[in-house]
Design a protein around this nucleic acid. Structure first.
Lengths: 172, 172
DNA sequence: CGTAAACCTTTGACATTTGAAATATAGCTC
DNA sequence: GAGCTATATTTCAAATGTCAAAGGTTTACG
């Protein structure tokens, strides 16, 4: 065990704990990922609310629609936001009430509902997105860019591993 | 049967990014952290429900109480689980109804409510915790232990940075 | 002592979330 | 076309989540 790391330097604390409770490394990492993600989410939620009167799920949903100006079917929205179908229904409903999103049913298939941003929705999202990006740069301001890139790669590895070990049906 | 109502396991970032060089590293990292965390959370939630009939928030709350056998005040529980006070009230209420948690008010300060695990709660949590740890080891099974340790450290750095740039107030 | 400030929890309104069942439509097969 | 199956969305109940305001309880101070 204890494979060689490319960076070569391993923290003493890690080695010590590795001998006694190395099997809890994954749990420890998970707890830290979870708390960090919660922390950032809450900060973003707070700022979205204070500065734009929007919620985080609404922002996430609008982000997808902003990238697909022709709109998206609700099922597709559900997959991209990792939110259940039933949830998407309600989110789009409220966004439509606020005049940010439009719904329409294409002629070809009447089962389908396509959601797209309204003019007002596009304008609001553009402003939110710019601010959002700035908040993240600010929050991660103390982290070395090289570390950020490294984290991005390595978390990608974690994600792949998880995808390969799902109990439910896995894609891709 | 097998009603299909899942949100499906589809990638969220491939859609959202376009290999910007340099400028949006933080945003890119954030999106990957978020989608990975969501993925793992959903898997854990699914297994907790299938194998133990419990929810993830309940598991999180019980985890805190398991570490403090004398119990915790609701406000302290709120901080540790990163959940609002009002939410903790309801969670503890439901857990008490299920006989997993006990509530009591200390003599010294009648403003306070202390929650602690019941015998039944301790036993259930012990079983869940063991399984939970195994799930994580399994899900991260393809990741080099050195990378796991490295991620733990570097995400700690991200967390510190975020904590230093909060608009409101929060701690580690 | 009395009152204001601080503290802890609960409550209430509302949004989000899940999981399952219900609707509705489309496509296929015979 | 009748019947079956697959697809797409909605609906429903219950739980979780936020935030703000309201309730009690201490504590501090004049």
């Amino acid at each position: 065990m204890m494979a060689e790391s490319e960076s070569g330097t391993v923290d003493l604390e890690i080695i010590v704990q590795g001998t006694q409770e190395g099997k809890k490394q994954e749990l420890r990492l998970w707890l830290r990922m979870l708390s960090t993600t919660k922390l950032i989410s809450q900060e973003i939620r707070r700022r979205l609310r204070n500065e734009f009167g929007a919620t985080l799920p609404q922002f996430d949903l609008m982000a997808q629609l902003y990238r697909e100006r022709d709109g998206l079917r609700l099922g597709e929205l559900s997959k991209r936001t990792m939110v259940t179908n039933g949830n998407v229904t309600g989110l789009v409903e409220r966004l439509e009430t606020d005049g940010l999103v439009l719904r329409e049913t294409p002629d070809g298939d009447r089962r389908v509902t396509v959601a797209k941003l309204s003019k007002k929705g596009e304008e609001l999202f553009a402003a939110m997105a710019a601010a959002h990006e700035g908040w993240l740069r600010d929050m991660m301001g103390d982290v070395d860019p090289a570390i950020i890139a490294e984290l991005w790669r390595d978390i990608g590895g974690v994600k792949s591993s998880v995808n390969n070990h799902l109990s439910g049906a896995a894609f891709d």
